[in-house]
């Protein structure tokens, strides 16, 4: 999933300055799972903002809604009839949702309520960590299913840097060394010969080097 975290409320208030009727729009997908922008977070933020504006003596109307997704036309269409009533929409979806809204509703300012962080997993409730950077050319088949692009601080493709200690990365003792995990797992799988394989110099054109990316599937295109 895409992991996000809510922006500090001071920053949100700063971006809402001058707007009197605001819709806080949550998303039922990833940001609900990482507890940053689902229905519950929309309600909590709306209450906090109402209290803030009331204390300031400002009449600001805050309304709430949560869509199934903000990265699909069909769900974004649900607010078409009502969006013009608002001075601004504060989206708690990831940056993808914020932008898709902005592209669709040209006349309404769309503001972000979360900072989008990475593609990752829920290690336990309240702990999310990165697993994928969407480099566009997956090498997990040769690295025991563990990604050195997203999990090695130096993105090394051919073994550890020598800076790790007791299985932890030199940048932070809390961060496991990706190559330690890869080698342990290759051993476990009896596939250490994969480690001998030299991974060629990476072609980053499928990452961001080629500019904004797009996937087109003619077979499913409508």
């Amino acid at each position: 999933m895409i992991v996000a975290k809510q922006k500090p409320i001071e920053e949100i208030i700063e971006t809402l300055k001058g707007y009197n009727k605001i819709l806080i729009l949550g998303c039922n997908e990833c940001v609900t799972v990482c507890e940053a922008g689902g229905k519950k977070e929309v309600a909590v933020l709306a209450s906090a903002l109402r209290m803030y504006f009331m204390n300031q003596g400002q009449e600001v109307k805050i309304e709430e809604a949560t869509l199934e997704r903000q990265c699909d036309h069909e769900y974004l269409e649900e607010i078409r009839k009502t969006v013009d009533q608002y001075d601004a929409v504060l989206s708690l979806a990831c940056g993808v949702g914020v932008q898709f809204l902005a592209e669709k509703y040209m006349h309404t300012p769309i503001l972000p309520g979360v900072d989008t962080c990475f593609m990752g997993v829920t290690e336990e409730r309240g702990v999310w960590s990165e697993r994928c950077q969407g480099c566009g050319q997956c090498i997990l088949a040769w690295t025991a299913g563990i990604c050195p692009v997203s999990r090695c601080a130096k993105r090394l493709l051919n073994g550890p840097c020598g800076g790790s200690s007791k299985g932890k990365c030199e940048i932070n003792k809390e961060v496991p060394c990706a190559w330690q995990i890869i080698i342990d797992r290759l051993n476990e799988l009896g596939r250490m010969e994969d480690y001998e394989r030299l991974i060629p110099i990476k072609d980053w054109s499928t990452e961001r080097a080629g500019g904004p990316r797009k996937v087109v599937r003619e077979d499913v295109r409508s």
Binding site: R208, G210, G211
Partner: peptide
């Protein structure tokens, strides 16, 4: 210019 215009388009800008 962006790397895609050059002779090493695989480079990471």
């Amino acid at each position: 210019e962006d790397v895609r215009f050059g002779d090493h388009p695989q480079a990471r800008a």
